[in-house]
Design a protein around this nucleic acid. Structure first.
Lengths: 338, 338
DNA sequence: CTGTTAGCGCTTTCAA
DNA sequence: TTGAAAGCGCTAACAG
């Protein structure tokens, strides 16, 4: 059985309050301080955090609710966030929503019931209602990677629209005009799709229906099937833009299977600099999200709200995402050859 | 401010014990039951789990400490474990050790202080000492993926040695005899290396020094550098075996850079069926660990120990890992051609 | 079945 | 500086 503060009292003969004060960094006569330290060591005493939380109403724990823990993107963000929180003396409780809104709502409830001091979340739902339990309990929430437009709440994202515009311009500048786009039908995917359309419109190029693919949620399958379909078209695109990592993977699988080479046959541009683009041959040209900065900003905003003021206006931070050149974009193949 | 059980008392006029009993599924007169339910709804009452834990000494929360959360393997295992725990009414608190033993020790401490009911861990350290806080507090621990040989403790792993033997035999059967091996210098890597050596010895083939590479920890860099070195050798191997996912990634990067084709120039066999092997061209031949079963067994053993008996003897479960054929292993190239 | 009472282990007045 | 006492929100005897 673990020892308690009362055991320390028995050992030192001091009062509970004195010991507690010492534990919390207060001033204690150095003679008593020594006694307490000796007793702690002797009894291997560690404060019961549960009891502590019950009275202080603080747990120094942050809940991190992630839409899908199995994807690489989550792992990397989690690693950075965990490190930053740890630096500031906070622990992290990770919950996986498994792309399910019901599970997500339960995760919010779970975190609130566990009295976390704040919540970082990469949300599944775009309906702010699921945040209600946190709001009611006055627990600050910061959205990561995705925002909920209709709702005033702290969030840190990248400027998806402009990043996608830049990626599209990159293709246009290299002479592509027959460009297909495959996007997931959730917040980031839609934003990036808008950016794509904006760039195409500005260039005065209309995009045929059959060059546009979309489906709910991140999906390797979407990328795979869409690319397969594109390859059956008479008038194939010369370049394809994907709006996230998983879609890129699916596209590459399909190209490999069909023996289509990149960038010789079709050029490719995507999002997210995770492991695959580094291992691929040729290296993928992509928009790299500043993962570490996203985590750092999220943690900074959240802890600031916890430790300073709850009455600050909501903050929306939008970070810059850089275009990293690989070798997956070439000149468009000549129509005659195809 | 969140409402408490006392607010329910004020609302219903019932005693605290009755309400508590209802909350915990006890028998209450249906008339009172209705009153309580109405009050709960009206006040949006949710029990304070912290207070509950303080008295019951149970949190229905499991700590999952992972050596490196950024890798795909962790994400997949976490996803399964989270789902199984959730099914049984448990929450999960994930901690990242970031491949650092010191951080790992702190994570154990953190989980113990937070009064988790049990711990699942993919350990960094092979020294059982770091588990002491959990042992002292009588919190059950189950090791996943790696075991600590010197110590009697529950664990679930795959039979790494035999899996590696089979993989090596697979190469031998196809006529390879010049086989290089690249392994990480931690538990699983060493086991798999032993399996490799055993198979080679049985086949009566001695492995030259320059065909063996190893380094601490999982490492894409190890794979990359080792493969680069192998490709400078006069007498190159005809096949390479890697002992984990990250090493495979590095090897493939190096091959791509050097324009070496697989399996035409060099055959490849590896471990872990994660995203890359599915996206690669050609598909990688590999030993697939049964991720879902590992998670299921780990959860089953841990919850069994929590809910039933602590006095059962330690369990060591070793699961079977299947060899999945891809197209990355071919016949050895003829020496003359090289 | 119900309610009173006494804690769980800790922090926090407040008076000394 | 110190310590006695009250209380965080809940559960668990125990008596009714």
């Amino acid at each position: 059985m673990a020892s308690t503060i009362k055991d320390i009292r028995a050992e030192t003969g001091l009062g509970l309050a004195t010991i507690s004060k010492y534990l919390n960094g207060g001033n204690v006569r150095s003679e008593n301080k020594q006694k307490i330290e000796d007793a702690i060591k002797k009894l291997d005493y560690h404060p019961n955090e549960t009891a502590r939380s019950l009275v202080t109403k603080r747990t120094r724990t942050i809940g991190f609710i992630v839409h899908n823990i199995a994807i690489n993107f989550s792992g990397v963000l989690l690693q950075h966030a965990s490190a930053f929180l740890h630096e500031r003396g906070y622990g992290m409780m990770i919950c996986d929503s498994n792309l399910d809104e019901k599970q997500e709502a339960e995760n919010i409830r779970f975190c609130v019931d566990k009295q976390v001091d704040g919540i970082l979340i990469m949300p599944v739902s775009s309906d702010p209602a699921f945040l209600a339990p946190a709001v009611k309990s006055d627990i600050p929430v910061v959205l990561l990677d995705r925002e909920i437009k209709s709702h005033e709440i702290d969030c840190v994202t990248i400027d998806n629209l402009n990043a996608a515009k830049r990626a599209t311009d990159y293709l246009l500048e290299r002479g592509h005009s027959k460009i297909a786009v495959i996007h997931s039908r959730e917040y980031t995917g839609e934003e990036r799709f808008k950016g794509f359309l904006a760039a195409m419109e500005k260039a005065g190029i209309s995009v045929p229906e059959e060059y546009i693919f979309s489906a709910r949620s991140h999906s390797t399958e979407l990328g795979y099937k869409s690319m397969k379909t594109l390859l059956t078209l008479k008038d194939k695109p010369t370049a394809v833009m994907t709006t996230n990592y998983e879609v890129s993977l699916g596209v590459i699988m399909a190209m490999n299977e069909e023996g289509v080479r990149c960038p010789r046959d079709i050029s490719l541009i995507g999002f997210d600099e995770l492991i695959l683009p580094m291992v691929m041959n040729p290296k993928l040209t992509l928009v790299a999200q500043p993962m570490e900065d996203i985590a750092a900003e999220g943690v900074r905003i959240l802890l600031n709200r916890i430790e300073e003021g709850k009455d600050l206006p909501p903050q929306r931070v939008s970070l810059y995402a850089a275009l990293k050149e690989g070798e997956s974009v070439g000149k468009p193949r000549k129509d005659k050859k195809q």
